[in-house]
Write a protein that binds this DNA or RNA. Structure first.
Lengths: 212, 212
DNA sequence: TAGATTGTTAATCGATTAACAATC
DNA sequence: TAGATTGTTAATCGATTAACAATC
């Protein structure tokens, strides 16, 4: 019966979470949708609408309790649970992800790093040993893996993604520059860096034209 | 007089570009909006609407010439021009970007790499020397810099972004986990990896609840 | 020419903003 | 209590889809 919450709303939740975290760090105890809207440069209406998709977290005449709202959004985003991540592709990008200490604070724990390059075998990144791709199946069978980050060239990504799904992994964080075709029960989040760069490029050209 | 083209449309253009590139590689000469819509899992109507924001690239009764459309979208995205990029922050992420050979094919050329860590000084990544942050001002004065990628911790990102703008850089590809407050003439494209990961986490939790 | 498919207008759907009654 | 601010309904705006005349 719950009405589906649009991805547009979901996309904004981490940003709310970030701003509330900053307010919390600054010792701010409560905030109104109006004040938050000024800081975030969105409408107060949108903030209230977005939040009320998940429940009434505020109080009339008072606003929102920062700590409470922060925690609630954290729960909505699943940050109260631990997510074990393996990274497949231990090149620079994979290692960059493995080094993001902040992920760990939010419950995202890197438990494994895999690559095909024998030269990397046994090397450690932040204490995490790089294993060979052949060992991945055993690894997944013996430990809980919630998310697989794909940080390898796109030529290998499709086959590895399917293998991961076969092995029971049902969430993929895909950095490879292709669209994965996977069963419906698998959740895929794409990070297409070159798409992002092209968007930037478009906006540069546009701005240049406008200024003439 | 040109009506503003929405960012929703812009966000889809690189994806069209990618699919057309694949068709081109496969030797496909022409394609109808209908067939493309099946491959891309969008509506044919949306494809035609999107493209017609920029002009009529097709031909009634024929469809679209793949090579022509590919090139036209490339021009729309500014890929016919060279963009010189410096990367500020030569950690794993910065080095990962520097190593993306594919960017170069699209006209994005990494011309400089900067860091504050003296241990990295003089090291080279794909032939590009890592320089110290202090040298950045001189570098920007003496060479054309179109885009600066910020791949450093968020604590330093805001100050560096402002410095870059002072030095005349007007496009920022921001990987730091904060919203930059910069003058209107500066174009900013954000890549917030942790936001992306939280979105994935939300969708994992949602799918888990649905399956109960 | 007949068939195919675009470009474009109109209809629908969904998301954002405005307004305000409820209530702390 | 009076003032403030939410939660929520209604109005608006914009984006997507459908339909079809134009035309290759």
């Amino acid at each position: 019966m719950d009405k589906e919450i649009s991805q547009a709303v979901i996309r904004r939740m981490p940003r709310y979470y970030r701003y509330l975290g900053e307010l919390l760090d600054d010792g701010v105890e409560r905030i109104s949708s109006n004040e938050l809207s000024h800081r975030m440069k969105v409408t107060a209406s949108q903030i209230r609408q977005d939040l009320n998709n998940f429940g009434g977290f505020g109080q009339q005449g008072y606003g929102y309790n920062v700590k409470f709202l922060y925690d609630e959004i954290g729960k909505i985003l699943g940050l109260d649970q631990q997510h074990n991540i393996i990274i497949v592709g231990a090149g620079n990008l994979g290692q960059a992800l493995a080094n993001y200490v902040n992920f760990e604070k939010r419950g995202f724990v890197i438990t494994g790093l895999f690559d095909v390059n024998p030269a990397l075998k046994g090397r450690k990144v932040r204490g995490i040993e790089i294993r060979m791709l052949e060992e991945m199946a055993d690894f997944i069978h013996s430990t809980q893996v919630d998310i697989a980050a794909l940080t390898m060239p796109k030529e290998q990504a499709d086959a590895v993604a399917h293998q991961l799904v076969e092995l029971g992994v049902s969430a993929i964080w895909n950095f490879a520059h292709l669209d994965l075709e996977l069963p419906d029960h698998v959740v895929v989040e794409n990070v297409h860096l070159s798409d992002s760069l092209m968007q930037l490029s478009y906006n540069i050209v546009k701005k240049k034209l406008e200024s003439i």
